[in-house]
Simulated assay, not measured.
Amino acid sequence: MSIEPDVGADGPASAGERSPRALTEQSLVLTWRQLAVLVRDRATVLQILFIPALTMVMFKVVLGDAIGSATGQDSVYGTVPLVILVSAMFGSLASAVRLNKERATGLLGRLYVLPIHRAADLTSRVLCEVVRIVITTILLLLAGMFIGFRFTQGPFAVLGILGVALMFGIAYSTFVLSVAVNVRPSVTLVPMLSLLSSVLMFFNSGFSPVEAYPTWLQPIVENQPMTPAIDVMRALASGGPITENMVKVVLWAVTITVVCAVPALRGYKKAATAR
Rank of each mutant, 00 (worst) to 15 (best):
Lys270Ser: 01
Ile138Val: 15
Gly68Leu: 00
Thr174His: 00
Asp121His: 15
Asn245Ile: 06
Ser194Gly: 15
Arg98Thr: 14
Gly240Trp: 11
Leu35Asp: 07
Gly78His: 09
Cys128Ala: 15
Ile220Trp: 11
Ala22Thr: 12
Pro52Gly: 10
Tyr213His: 06
Gln26Asn: 13
Ser186His: 05
Met89Phe: 13
Leu35Arg: 08
Ala70Ser: 15
Asp65Leu: 08
Leu196Lys: 02
Val190Asn: 05
Glu17Val: 06
Ala70Pro: 12
Pro5Lys: 08
Thr79Gly: 10
Phe90Cys: 08
Pro263His: 01
Met58Ser: 13
Leu28His: 07
Thr255Trp: 05
Cys260Trp: 05
Gly11Ile: 05
Thr174Pro: 01
His117Asn: 14
Gln218Leu: 05
Met233Ser: 04
Val250Pro: 05
Pro209Leu: 06
Val259Arg: 01
Met58Tyr: 07
Phe50Gly: 13
Thr273Asp: 03
Gly169Pro: 11
Arg234Gln: 13
Leu30Glu: 06
Phe50His: 06
Leu141Thr: 07
Trp32Phe: 09
Pro52Phe: 08
Tyr112Ala: 15
Val39Ser: 09
Pro191Cys: 01
Gly64Phe: 08
Pro228Glu: 14
Pro263Asp: 00
Ala88Val: 14
Gly267Met: 01
Gly154Lys: 08
Ala180Asn: 00
Val176Thr: 08
Val190Lys: 03
Ser198Tyr: 10
Asn100Pro: 02
Leu114His: 11
Phe203Pro: 00
Gly206Leu: 03
Phe151Leu: 15
Asp6Pro: 02
Arg125Cys: 02
Ser92Gly: 15
Pro225Arg: 09
Thr227Val: 13
Ala272Phe: 02
Val29His: 11
Ala272Glu: 01
Val134Ala: 11
Thr79Asp: 12
Ser2Thr: 14
Val258Lys: 09
Val190Gln: 04
Gln73Pro: 00
Arg42Asp: 12
Ala66Leu: 07
Phe202Ser: 03
Gly109Phe: 09
Leu46Pro: 06
Ile84Ser: 13
Arg150Trp: 05
Ala274Val: 03
Val37Arg: 12
Thr215Gln: 12
Tyr172Cys: 03
Ala171Asn: 09
Arg132Met: 11
Ala165Met: 08
Thr136Gln: 15
Asn182Lys: 00
Leu251Phe: 11
Ala272Asp: 03
Met167Ser: 04
Val57Lys: 03
Ala43His: 12
Ser95Glu: 04
Ile242Asp: 07
Val62Tyr: 08
Ser95Val: 10
Val97Ala: 10
Val86Glu: 14
Gln34Asn: 14
Ser75Arg: 01
Leu251Thr: 12
Val259Ser: 02
Ala180Pro: 00
Ala22His: 14
Met201Ala: 14
Pro209Trp: 02
Gln218Ser: 03
Phe175Tyr: 05
Gly160Trp: 09
Asn245Thr: 11
Ser178Gly: 02
Phe202Met: 12
Leu28Glu: 04
Ser186Tyr: 04
Val45Tyr: 10
